[in-house]
């Protein structure tokens, strides 16, 4: 329940769930059943509840979430592909009083932008990164990504990904957790109400880490891409639970104070 939901009474009915104020009325351009929409809303709810709407700046990737500036009623910068961590670094260093988050897909964060992502984490930049892992490149048509699972069929791995030819699924969160810079790294999912509540708590915690100057935090989300997975939205949720979680287990990876 959005705690921010205004207590509007209709007769004896109280409004207990509504669109957060940090989102505007513009409709998302995501496909039906895409988890980006849920994650966007959770971030907006967290911003509402922490009371930081006027002091938060987002940086959006190239990818399905490229139009974040249309949907969020906050300032959003849309850098070149993969450079989100670098631009978020600049924004935060120029204005340390602001809360700055980076929102990136696996193409942006784990492929073209891996260099930027790893160095921002290693520097322990005081930013919050949301990394949306849907195991392929969504916007461009479902091609294989570094995060694609072994055996997974995509438009560029029609026989399924093989480790011999394409290597292994890239575990960005575990990789960055080896560095000394990051202070909070966790992996979350949003396929059911319980996971959604946990994910929102993690988002608020990551924002609080930044507000308390604790340094770099990263939340990886396992996200469904029903269209490119060739599944209906309920089947896509099931795939995360049954297959994707096996490779990318949920839960906190590091927490340092």
């Amino acid at each position: 329940m959005s705690e921010k939901a205004v207590a509007e009474n209709t007769g004896k009915m109280k409004k207990v769930f509504d669109k957060p104020e940090t989102l505007n009325d513009q409709q998302f351009s995501y496909c039906p059943g895409c988890h980006h929409g849920v994650i966007n809303r959770l971030i907006a709810e967290a911003i509402d509840e922490l009371g930081i709407q006027d002091t938060t700046v987002g940086t959006a990737p190239v990818g399905c979430s490229v139009f974040m500036y249309k949907w969020f009623d906050i300032d959003v910068i849309q850098p070149a592909h993969g450079r989100v961590s670098a631009v978020a670094t600049g924004a935060k260093r120029a204005r340390p009083d602001l809360t700055v988050f980076a929102y990136q897909g696996d193409g942006d964060f784990a492929s073209i932008g891996t260099n930027n992502s790893a160095h921002a984490a290693n520097r322990g930049e005081n930013i919050t990164t949301f990394f949306i892992n849907n195991t392929l490149y969504g916007m461009t048509g479902g091609e294989m990504a570094p995060t694609t699972l072994i055996g997974q069929k995509t438009t560029t791995s029609p026989q399924g990904r093989t480790a011999k030819d394409f290597g292994y699924p890239m575990k960005m969160s575990e990789m960055l957790a080896e560095l000394d810079g990051p202070t909070y790294i966790t992996r979350q999912a949003v396929y059911d109400v319980k996971r959604i509540d946990q994910a929102k708590a993690a988002i608020k915690k990551a924002f609080r880490f930044q507000m308390e100057d604790k340094g770099y935090s990263l939340i990886e989300f396992l996200s469904a891409c029903p269209i490119n997975w060739g599944m209906d939205p309920a089947e896509a949720n099931e795939r995360i639970r049954e297959e994707v979680e096996e490779v990318y287990p949920l839960g906190d990876i590091i927490e340092r104070s």
Partner: peptide, 18 residues
């Protein structure tokens, strides 16, 4: 409010009787 929480398009408003 479960429907609202899982909705990826923020299309649902939920009311609860007090």
């Amino acid at each position: 409010g479960f429907c609202g929480k899982v909705c990826p398009d923020v299309a649902i408003t939920v009311y609860k009787k007090q």
